[in-house]
Design a protein around this nucleic acid. Structure first.
Lengths: 202, 202
DNA sequence: CGAAGGTAGTTGACAGCGTCAACATTGTGT
DNA sequence: ACACAATGTTGACGCTGTCAACTACCTTCG
């Protein structure tokens, strides 16, 4: 679907803010983060090149909004993965969380970059809910005597780092081919996660 | 030191390629990756705005060269850390490798972003040597019966992911303040690393 | 109903960017 | 000495983010 023309846009767009976010998302998927520009998003939404400034203070603000969209999607996937995994098998539950994260990264590498890239003000609170999900899972595992005692925040961050590192390295194709060695990405990634799990499980 | 003027630059610069890399590095440190431009680097090196094209095919090529510089520095630091740690204590050796990586990330966050960012063609081979260092350390630990048997490449990647994830999250200030909780970054990061180590050590 | 004012969108301008084509200068090898 | 290759310069193009000034529409109050 090409750019909007002057068909159904009677001067006032209706919901330009959301349209710009979606246009930006499309650009991201199709052309990557380098190609993401305010003007292109505006063109895609069928408005003039400065119309976005009525909804976003600057380019960064649009990017931040796109990133937030990503945080929401990521959290939804993680929540879903958790709901679909056995309630008592904490290793499975943690694996499900990690794999959901990595799947998101593989399907939307550009979106991930925007979420965790250099764009400031996109700090903690955004990924906070997903992180909390991990902390709670660990705490539950500890309550069930399945996970070693210790600061759940510390444990969560360690696992988060492993998953996040794996996700970004996979998404940016920074994994040496020798390491992957033709293996299925899913089985490979999950195998990587077992190592810290072995350190946490009892 | 401001831009070069027409003092000591007798038309031919002498070693413009390296000068541009260093100029780019300076811009990176001082103004971040968003501010890095061919024209600015050229200005800093005291040449016209298209002179860089005699040494780099395009902006990406300059960035790739800067990234390579980073890979070299990172590898040097890791090698140094390994040399300075006890030869038989494999937990210490792995911790030293990880902490060297994280220190580099904290001191040069923008450089790290360029090394592992979206700039293509900056793939595996570059970080390869540092990665090999990790693989060798693990293999040595296995030979000494200090590390659990298993594919050292797999183990290395898992640890790499943890360290890389921690490094990027710290560098981008994506660690929720609650987690850090006023703790010393070094002790905190090292504590995070102990979890996968517990899974690997015997 | 009609004027007032705010909200949302437009036009035009500016400087900075990456890149290309054409040209100028310098060093080198025959 | 001269041609040639390597290196650097000038000028142009279209793209970008952003600002200022202007315009169209909606709402709301008199």
């Amino acid at each position: 679907m090409p750019d909007q023309t002057a068909k159904d846009t009677p001067y006032h767009h209706g919901n330009l803010r959301q349209a710009l976010i979606e246009a930006g998302l499309e650009i991201l998927e199709q052309e990557g983060s380098r190609a993401l520009s305010l003007r292109k998003a505006a063109r895609k939404a069928g408005v003039s090149h400065t119309a976005p400034y009525r909804h976003f203070a600057n380019k960064e603000a649009l990017i931040a909004a796109i990133a937030e969209e990503g945080y929401r999607e990521l959290e939804a996937r993680m929540r879903q993965a958790l709901a679909a995994s056995p309630p008592d098998d904490y290793r499975s539950r943690l694996t499900a969380l990690g794999w959901a994260y990595i799947q998101f990264a593989l399907e939307h590498p550009h979106h991930l970059r925007v979420m965790f890239g250099d764009f400031p003000e996109t700090c903690q609170p955004d990924a906070g809910d997903s992180f909390t999900l991990l902390v709670q899972t660990i705490a539950a595992g500890q309550a069930a005597q399945a996970i070693v005692p210790g600061d759940p925040l510390q444990f969560a961050l360690s696992l988060w780092a492993t998953v996040h590192g794996l996700a970004t390295l996979l998404a940016e194709h920074k994994i040496p081919a020798i390491v992957l060695n033709g293996r299925n990405t899913e089985e490979f990634a999950k195998a990587c996660l077992q190592i810290p799990y072995d350190g946490l499980m009892r």
